[in-house]
Amino acid sequence: MLKLIQKGALAGAMILAAGAALAEYPEKPIEVVVGYSAGGGTDVMARTAAPFIEKYLGGGASLVVKNVPGASGQIGVTEVAGAKPDGYTIGTFNLPGMMARTIDREAGYDRDSFTYLANVVNDPNVIVTSKDSGLDTMEKLIAAAKADPGAITVGMSSLGGDDHFALIKLEGLTETEFTIVPFKGSAPARTALMGGHVAMGILNISEVASFQDELNLLGVATEERSDFAPDLPTFREQGIDLINGSMRGFVAPAGLPEDVVAKLDGAFEQMAGDPEFLKAMADTANPVEVVTGDDFKQLTSDLYDLANKVWQETPWN
């Protein structure tokens, strides 16, 4: 009897030990490939999130950020897609840009190249107008666009990005037509807007939050109002069903082992509820909206379909 208990205990200990061996991931530093230079929005997100992921992975896990800048994040994300799926290489992922690039050029990856870990940031689009334009409500803007199709110039950060898709959605919803002026990045677009060189802009809320006195903010493309500008009504409140934004998250190469996925997803979920993390993200102007696993995959797929539809109708290059 005693022997039996001993045996049982031994067996139990062995199972525990085996379980521990499996659960030992990560046993070496995890490399986080960021497709942009140090100091960019995506880089700051990755570096802000890294210590929290380390904390929730536990066991002395360590994340090392590696910047692989170039070609709007393409070089970095291609490196992630081709990396060994062992959980020691993960990367940042931007939507809809990363999916749009698989449509408008030959990319070294597609939507099935990744294990989708977690989307962390959802930065909704806002429509702003310059103070000089006098278009201080959505109604006035749409009326002006209808009166002279194409007369309103819209500054944005690039073609084939979230702001471009937002404009195309807006044009479809309101049967209007605008002239797109794609600057190199959102800061120059915002500056041209402040100088009155373009009439309207589609930007992201984090980019205009500290410029609320210099610009007319007309609406935000979310379901509920954003914490960054609580007084700003959503488009839904104004009768336009426009929901769109720029998203940033983390992916790993496709074919990651189940247990590693579970462990990483768990860490991201715990991180999402950490008030310290939320504060750190708010300080760096990153609106957090964590979506993990299959939901994230679905989100990517939906955005791919949207981008593809837009591309079929109005190719941008």
Partner: peptide
Amino acid sequence: LVHGLQPGP
């Protein structure tokens, strides 16, 4: 940006 200093007024 790394130090949470957002440009702007």
